[in-house]
Design a binder for these strands. Structure first.
Lengths: 162, 162
DNA sequence: CAATCTATAGTTAGCTC
DNA sequence: CGAGCTAACTATAGATT
């Protein structure tokens, strides 16, 4: 799978696929009560986006790393105070599906072979589906902590199929 | 279609659908030579993202509205200078697939009935597929101009199916 | 908790008009 | 230039292990 050579076909596909992604993003937001943003920049220097509940909401999360309304309060408390509250209302243990995908943050392709072994198994599984391609571009998954204190764009590279 | 009631199922779906979207975003980036970013915030206050070539690239475009390398130069020139250059290298006429989706920027639902008629036909077609749901949330498409001088998050609301 | 399977549902590339 | 179609492809909800 590679870049569509014909420019017209490429642009038509760009448009069609974008709507497909927006539709899926919309579905995700409804089914899972999530906030989702999608940004698409064509090389022709046009940009489009989808956002739920709005692209502004997503933008603000990225720009200002606003704590979410449902748990931000705790994070504003001192660590000791937060700990004691957490004892009263303990967090449920986390399932694999809600774990951060990875804690790797390397950006150099050379580092991949060893570091990639540290990926969580379910990511490896998915990553295996996305087989190597010749190009140097990469597929990135990242976990974004929403408190200002933590790195908001922690990133992991895996091999990319498309 | 509505929010999945069971929390476990909801989280599993969140995880599965996210990967599906990432896969499609990856495909889009390769086929169409585009830069794509996806941000997912679960209500459990976790956030994940996909980015091609990296989420950092997308983040920087949003944060700093960096002009793209392939056409940003022109936009930094004075209008008069730009005009004269554009005469020498005229832009090709645009197809429907590369037009900004809309030039509507309203945020009030009350304004929709009249304004929505201005949407391009292919957007109307898509929008019609996304039928009303009871909730007040909305599906947003937006066009993002990449020069600092223009509104980077111009937005249009249409009805949402999911 | 995590992986795997599968029937069903959904998507789209290329085509026609 | 856009809209519509559909065969082939792809994704996924729910079940199973």
């Amino acid at each position: 799978m590679k870049r569509i050579p014909n420019e017209e076909n490429r642009l038509i596909t760009f448009s069609k696929c974008r709507f497909g992604i927006y539709k899926k993003a919309s579905k995700l937001s409804t089914l899972c009560d999530a906030e989702v943003g999608v940004l698409d920049f064509s090389l022709a220097s046009k940009a489009f986006s989808f956002g739920h509940p709005s692209i502004e909401t997503i933008k603000n999360k990225v720009l200002y790393e606003n704590p979410p309304s449902n748990d931000g309060t705790l994070n504003l408390l001192k660590r000791s105070k937060r700990r004691s509250l957490e004892k009263k209302v303990p967090k449920p243990s986390k399932g694999w599906w809600e774990e951060p995908i990875s804690e790797l943050g390397m950006h150099e392709p050379e580092q991949m072979p060893t570091k990639i072994q540290m990926l969580r198994k379910h990511v490896q599984h998915r990553a295996n589906e996305l087989r190597t391609r010749a190009s140097s571009s990469s597929l990135s998954f990242s976990m974004v902590n929403q408190t200002p204190a933590t790195n908001p764009f922690f990133m992991t590279k895996v091999e990319q199929k498309y």
